[in-house]
């Protein structure tokens, strides 16, 4: 267990995740209070990566539940193994009904899904509920008991309480708002695109083969691109891909006039690429003027 936000930031850095001080403090408080942490932010800023790095840093077993529309309890929490129950019934024709009745709804016939698995696990667990905003509102309400008390209720078995309280991380791309009840139970962390210096460090740790000059150029360029009114702004992973693409083409530095064809690594909508290409001409002229001065 880390003793301060700085300590937490350091162990995360060892796992390859760079976090700023404010976010580290928030996350540290969530860990200290054993509360779930709801991480929000645009796509590609490293929400899921943060959870993965935290699991490694804290030596917790990672259990991941990917949310989608229509996700229900039978896929997230538990289901009864009907086939096995039928087999049991077939074998037990001569037995006393009362024995079979109790037996049929025991843990032996229970199929654990990720949420139940995280509750029943004997070792420390980090439960990542990814993209919760994609799930339905009923599912969100169902999660409240787990988030607040670390327990779940199964009608046939009663209430199951966790052996070691799982650390819960929820992520969201903000495609729908959550209820106050859910927000109240979580510590809220908003991640945004990294600052220029941080992005350079991230690139440096993920792609150490790149030259310093190229790293600096790429990060400055991406920071500039993120100021444009685009449909989808480049994420950190796209920045890494873009830098590696330029490196593969053996470019030592980023030259505005020489980027055609590589922009599709950075931007994913043709319209965004067209907008950027238009702007590139202006930036190229500006860069030329600066060099002449």
């Amino acid at each position: 267990m880390q003793t301060s936000p700085l300590d937490l930031a350091r162990v995360l850095e060892e796992e390859g995740y760079l976090i700023d001080q404010e976010a580290a403090t928030t996350l540290f408080l969530a860990l200290a209070l054993e509360k779930p942490c709801l991480i929000e932010g645009p796509a590609g800023v490293g929400k899921t990566q943060l959870a993965l790095a935290l699991a490694r840093a804290q030596k917790r077993k990672l259990i991941r539940l990917q949310c989608y529309e229509g996700l229900d309890i039978s896929k997230a929490l538990y289901d009864w193994n009907y086939a096995k129950q039928l087999l049991r019934l077939q074998l037990a024709k001569t037995e006393d009904w009362n024995d079979i009745k109790a037996d049929l709804f025991s843990e032996e016939f229970l199929l654990s899904r990720p949420l139940l698995e995280s509750i029943l696990s004997a070792e420390p667990v980090l439960l990542l509920i990814d993209e919760l905003d994609k799930s339905d509102e009923e599912f969100e309400s169902f999660l409240l008991e787990l988030l607040a008390e670390g327990q779940v209720s199964i009608p046939e078995l009663g209430t199951l309480t966790s052996k070691s309280k799982p650390m819960v991380i929820l992520t969201s791309n903000n495609s729908r708002d959550f209820s106050d009840a859910l927000r109240r139970r979580c510590i809220h962390l908003y991640l945004t695109y990294p600052s220029l210096e941080r992005e350079i460090s991230i690139l440096n740790s993920h792609a150490p083969e790149l030259s310093k000059r190229l790293l600096q150029d790429v990060c400055e360029f991406v920071a500039k691109v993120r100021r444009l009114p685009l449909q989808k702004l480049p994420s950190v992973s796209e920045t890494i891909d873009f830098a590696q693409a330029l490196n593969t083409l053996q470019r030592e530095e980023l030259n505005y006039g020489n980027l055609m064809g590589t922009l599709s690594v950075l931007l994913k909508y043709p319209k965004d690429i067209a907008k950027l290409e238009e702007r590139l001409k202006k930036w190229e002229t500006e860069a030329l003027q600066r060099r002449e001065q």
């Binding site: 404010e22 403090t25 928030t26 969530a30 709801l38 708002d177 927000r183 510590i187 809220h188």
Partner: peptide, 10 residues
């Protein structure tokens, strides 16, 4: 920072 982390949920 502590109070902001604990009081602000959105």
């Amino acid at each position: 920072l502590i109070l902001k982390s604990l009081f602000i949920h959105q």
